[in-house]
């Protein structure tokens, strides 16, 4: 069965979608990602959709779901590489991808993830000190 590969890089998981996904493939990706997050204790997920010419309502909703689930599992999701035409279409469709952080490309996405992770760790340290 075909699958979208998920790469682990340090604390993060990286997914590069390079094929036009049919619906079951998207669902499988969602399941794979959530189980990887919990087994590796990852703190961030980066989804690269630069190869997609089109994101319809289903795929859009699934991306939103992935972000929501990751947040519950204590991981930040960043979607990178969305083409302008795709973005316009998404908005015209009536989807806003609430709660999904986006970045222009992979590099900026990684910076965003590291920054947010560091910030969270610092906050936790401070919390710890307060308690200590």
């Amino acid at each position: 069965m075909e699958r979208i590969p998920i790469l682990k890089m340090g604390d993060f998981l990286i997914v590069t979608i390079q094929v036009d996904m049919h619906d079951r493939l998207v669902t499988t990706l969602q399941d794979d990602l959530t189980s990887m997050i919990s087994s590796h204790g990852s703190h961030g997920v980066l989804i690269d959709i630069s190869s997609l010419d089109m994101v319809d309502s289903f795929i859009g909703r699934m991306i939103g779901n992935i972000a929501g689930m990751s947040r519950v599992l204590d991981a930040e999701t960043v979607v990178v590489g969305m083409r302008p035409a795709v973005a316009i279409t998404l908005v015209e469709l009536g989807l806003s991808l609430d709660g999904v952080r986006t970045a222009l490309d992979v590099e900026k996405g990684m910076i965003l993830l590291r920054a947010s992770t560091r910030r969270r760790l610092t906050e936790e340290d401070e919390d710890g000190r307060d308690e200590g």
Binding site: D53, M54, P84
Partner: peptide, 29 residues
Amino acid sequence: PDVVLARQRARQIAGLLGFAPLDQTRIAT
């Protein structure tokens, strides 16, 4: 997979008919 095929064909035809990339995406979507 036929759904995927349909939208890919839609995009391809739109391209051949001279639609701009944005419209191609709209039609495909």
